Simulated assay, not measured.
Amino acid sequence: MAGSKRTPRARACPCGSPSYAECCGPIHDGKPAPDPEALMRSRFSAFALDLSDYVLHSWHPEHRPPELESDPALRWVRLEVLESTGGGLFDAEGFVEFRAHYRDGGTPGVMTERSTFVRHDGRWVYQGPV
């Protein structure tokens, strides 16, 4: 699923982890996210790396848009996970509250969201904001 010209195999992960290859890289390549927080981090990294196919694939099919349009002026630059609940081995849903920092045409901005993640066909997917 990876395959962007911006994929940083040998450096820090856009989600804030020291290593893309040990963090979001394997999830972008098809390894299931072990919990909602890992999926949230992988989605943020996918937005940062312009991996729209992965973002769509990680969205619940009943809630995902038909396509995503890339905005070359928008850059996702930093993720803060504020809280992560649920998403354990026997849970069917989990929640992640986060702050995503971006630059839009050079102007900084922040998006805050509390997201719902659910199990669908045996894997975690993003359902939407709470």
Rank of each mutant, 00 (worst) to 15 (best):
G94K: 09
P26T: 03
L56F: 07
L51T: 14
P65G: 12
H60C: 06
A73L: 11
F117H: 03
A46H: 01
E113F: 05
A38K: 04
A10C: 09
S70C: 08
P8K: 09
R43T: 06
C24N: 11
W59Q: 13
L56E: 08
Y54C: 10
A33P: 00
E67H: 14
W76S: 08
R6M: 02
L79Y: 00
H120G: 05
E93G: 07
A48I: 13
G105F: 09
S45F: 02
S70Q: 15
P129T: 06
L79P: 10
F117M: 03
F44P: 02
P14H: 00
D104C: 00
L89H: 14
G94C: 02
P26F: 00
K5W: 10
V77H: 00
C23S: 02
W124T: 04
T85Y: 06
R119Y: 01
K31T: 14
T112W: 04
E97T: 15
D53K: 15
S45T: 11
R75F: 07
A46I: 00
A12F: 01
D35F: 13
Y102C: 09
M40L: 14
I27Q: 01
D29N: 15
P61L: 06
T85P: 02
R114M: 01
A10R: 10
S4G: 14
R6C: 05
T7E: 14
L51W: 10
H101T: 08
R11I: 04
E97D: 05
F44V: 07
M1A: 15
G94P: 14
E22N: 09
P34K: 12
G86M: 03
F117P: 12
V130D: 10
F44T: 08
H101Y: 13
H120S: 06
G94V: 05
S115M: 04
V96Q: 06
G109S: 01
H60D: 11
A100N: 04
S52L: 15
V118F: 00
S52V: 15
R103K: 06
P72Y: 00
T107G: 02
V55I: 15
V125K: 09
P36W: 14
E93M: 13
D29K: 10
G122W: 04
W59F: 11
L74W: 02
F44W: 05
H57P: 00
H101S: 14
R64Q: 11
P36Q: 11
S19L: 06
P108S: 03
P36I: 13
E67I: 11
E22G: 10
L89Y: 08
P26M: 01
T107F: 03
S58R: 01
T112Q: 12
T116N: 07
S4N: 03
P66K: 14
E22Y: 05
T116M: 04
L74A: 01
V77N: 03
A38Y: 07
P108D: 12
G87P: 01
D35W: 08
G86C: 06
D71I: 11
L89I: 11
E113S: 01
E80A: 11
D53Q: 13
G94N: 06
Y102N: 06
G109C: 03
P108R: 00
P129L: 01
L51D: 15
R6F: 13
E22A: 14
E80K: 12
P108K: 00
F44E: 08
G30N: 15
D71E: 15
E93W: 05
R75M: 04
E83A: 14
P18N: 02
